[in-house]
């Protein structure tokens, strides 16, 4: 999956889990917990929505790679078929 497709998938996952976040909030450098106030429950739902939409099943030991929006997109781009 190219980065643009991954970005679209990640953005729509955020729109579903945290609809109060605007498109402008989702900069690559934005940190999920500190900047976007995504808690562990929201995070689990994000991972779930991404798994449903792209088939990327993120194991727990990779969670740390998903701690920024950019990292999330890169991870999805790398692992989606």
């Amino acid at each position: 999956m190219d980065t643009q497709q991954a970005r679209t998938a990640v953005e729509s996952a955020f729109a579903e889990v945290a609809p109060d976040l605007g498109h402008d909030d989702l900069e690559d450098a934005a940190r999920l917990r500190q900047d976007l106030e995504i808690d562990s429950f929201d995070f689990l739902r994000l991972v779930q929505v991404i798994a449903d939409s792209t088939g990327v099943d993120t194991p727990e030991q990779d969670y740390h790679r998903l701690d920024t929006v950019g990292g999330f997109i890169a991870y999805v781009a790398e692992h989606a078929r």
Binding site: S40, F41, L44, V47, Q48, A51, D57, P59, E60
Partner: peptide, 14 residues
């Protein structure tokens, strides 16, 4: 526990 579960069934420490 989480390693053997699909994402939907995973638990958080909380």
């Amino acid at each position: 526990t989480n390693a053997s579960r699909p994402i939907a069934g995973r638990l958080v420490p909380a």
